[in-house]
């Protein structure tokens, strides 16, 4: 009950803050909030694999980056009027966000299917290492992919469009991102209460016991990993659109680490944990980043305190233990 109350307050804050920023004529703060919402979405994706499934993936930046590059590639071709592919059929670039999101979700889901199918043959520290290796593989591929900017990345001049909205207006783009986050959170909430989600949770506790009730745990975890990758990929497309820029850094292991920090800081396995974690991260980055270049030290101390003393992250601290 307290968990829902904390979640509702968090969401109320996400609605109220940009309205206040708009009234105060602070568009930069709206962009900052947009960044928090998009990073929260990426972390909600990881939370499905990490929090619910116990799959400690240190390669989720791969999906974040694939989503980003899906946006960058499609939009850059639309920008240059050069088709993406001419044979055997013509594929043009696009500036339509819904089409870009669909491509980002499908591409990152497909990548998650391949990476997950191989990685889930291992467990524990080997799973962490193999997901990290896949992430780094894609990172170095992006660096060498000069057709799409290589190390310098890819810039898009104008933010992509969404029917009925002017996405260049910060609060309109923010609203769009927030609605997507809310829809994904609602989907996540329904999923964790479904037999699929319950079995996934049970498999985290004991895969053997889940197998004895007739469930193929590897297929279950693979499905969760694919969904998780797809959500993080969608966040990647939005993040690239926010910055109008995509670069290999979106695929780096540091990015994977940051997404994991959002989840752990906010509360792994808690519905609103990744949202709280991402907001805290962006707020600290903004507030402490102005004071010192070494603000990550303070983040590190905070993370240590949370891991050592608070079970269930910040949401656990505010809402108490699970159930």
């Amino acid at each position: 009950m307290r968990g829902m109350l904390v979640g509702a307050m968090l969401l109320a804050g996400l609605v109220a803050f940009p309205i206040w920023a708009q009234a105060a004529d602070e568009p930069f703060l709206i962009t900052l909030a947009t960044r928090a919402v998009i990073l929260a979405l990426a972390a909600v994706g990881l939370n499905l694999a990490l929090g619910q499934g116990g799959l400690v993936s240190l390669g989720h930046a791969a999906f974040f980056g694939i989503g980003g590059y899906a946006m960058g590639i499609l939009a850059s071709h639309a920008q240059s009027y050069a088709p993406l592919m001419e044979w055997p059929f013509v594929i043009e670039g696009t500036r339509s966000m819904p089409v870009i999101w669909l491509v980002a979700v499908l591409a990152s889901a497909l990548a998650a299917l391949g990476i997950g199918a191989l990685s889930l043959r291992t467990t524990g520290v080997y799973f962490i290492m193999i997901t990290l290796a896949f992430g780094q593989m894609l990172y170095y591929f992006a660096i060498s992919w000069t057709a799409y900017g290589g190390e310098d990345g890819l810039s898009i001049y104008v933010r992509n469009g969404f029917p009925g909205l002017n996405t260049l207006v910060p609060i309109e783009f923010y609203g769009l991102c927030l609605v997507i986050l809310l829809v994904v959170l609602a989907f996540h909430a329904a999923l964790i209460r479904s037999p699929f989600g319950l079995a996934l949770n049970a498999a985290r506790q004991s895969p053997e016991r889940v197998r004895t009730v007739g469930i193929d745990t590897r297929r279950l975890q693979l499905a969760a990993f694919v969904l998780s990758g797809a959500i993080t990929g969608l966040a990647g497309a939005l993040f690239a659109d926010l910055n109008r820029f995509v670069s290999p850094s979106m695929l780096s292991w540091q990015m994977s680490g940051e997404i994991m920090i959002f989840v752990i800081l906010g509360g792994a396995g808690r519905l609103f944990g990744p949202v709280a974690g991402a907001i805290m991260f962006v707020a600290l980055e903004h507030l402490l980043g102005g004071v010192s270049d070494y603000w990550h030290v303070f983040l590190g101390i905070l993370l240590l305190l949370v891991v050592l003393f608070v079970r269930g992250g910040v949401i656990g601290l505010l809402a108490g233990a699970r159930r």
């Binding site: 319950l198 949770n201 049970a202 506790q205 004991s206 053997e208 016991r209 889940v210 197998r211 004895t212 009730v213 007739g214 469930i215 193929d216 745990t217 699970r322």
Partner: peptide
């Protein structure tokens, strides 16, 4: 595989109960 054996209709109540504790 073990899950296929279970699906054929073998239901196990394991030693030491072993419920899914967090559910």
């Amino acid at each position: 595989a073990s899950h296929r054996a279970a699906r054929l209709g073998i239901g196990l109540v394991p030693e030491g109960r072993r419920c899914f504790r967090d559910l």
